[in-house]
């Protein structure tokens, strides 16, 4: 019963942690915009979220075409394999989804940060982070008013 009540909150909480993670990665890119040889990175939010929710049936992320296991197999190729405790389906904040961004304008010093794109990503991610926060606030207010019954 209580899981049904909080599963929606749980989903948003995972999204919030992943948004914070992505915010951090983009901040690193902006900080290293002038560093020679630095390669920009980014977090694939969709994959990370699919892995984080894993077998969570309450998630709203059932995108039709993707494989049913999502990214939650963690390199296990046989059903008898034992999942690593640190890399279980619900793990958050792992760096397994960090990819290297494609270079839009190659530069001689090997730096692949596109500052305009990073700033756009940063703002976009900040807005989505705030949206997730508001979802959490709204859901918790709904739960509280249901509990209090007033």
């Amino acid at each position: 019963m209580i899981t049904n009540m909080t599963s929606g909150l749980d989903f948003q909480a995972k999204a919030l942690v992943l948004r914070a993670e992505r915010q951090r990665v983009i901040a690193s890119n902006i900080a290293n915009a002038d560093t020679p040889g630095y390669v920009a990175r980014d977090l694939n939010f969709k994959d990370a979220m699919l892995q984080a929710t894993g077998a969570d049936s309450s998630s709203g992320l059932r995108t039709g075409s993707s494989n049913p296991q999502g990214g939650a197999t963690n390199g296990m190729t046989h059903p008898a394999h034992i999942a690593l405790s640190g890399a279980a389906g619900g793990s958050l904040g792992g760096s397994s989804h960090l990819a290297y961004t494609a270079q839009s304008q190659p530069s001689l010093d090997g730096n692949s940060v596109d500052l305009d794109r990073e700033r756009a990503n940063f703002t976009d991610n900040a807005v989505r982070y705030e949206a997730t926060l508001r979802f959490i606030n709204g859901q918790s207010k709904t739960l509280l008013s249901a509990i209090q019954g007033q």
Binding site: L16, A20, Q23, A27, I30, A31, A33, D34, L115, R119, F122, T123, A126, Y129, E130, L133, I136, N137, S140, K141
Partner: peptide, 25 residues
């Protein structure tokens, strides 16, 4: 310009963290 960019990043992060602190209020 790079300095300004990073100041803005810190400001945004600060705003987000403050809003996170107010969660559930």
């Amino acid at each position: 310009r790079s300095y300004q960019n990073n100041v803005e990043v810190m400001n945004t992060a600060k705003t987000l963290l403050l809003k996170t602190l107010q969660m559930g209020q």
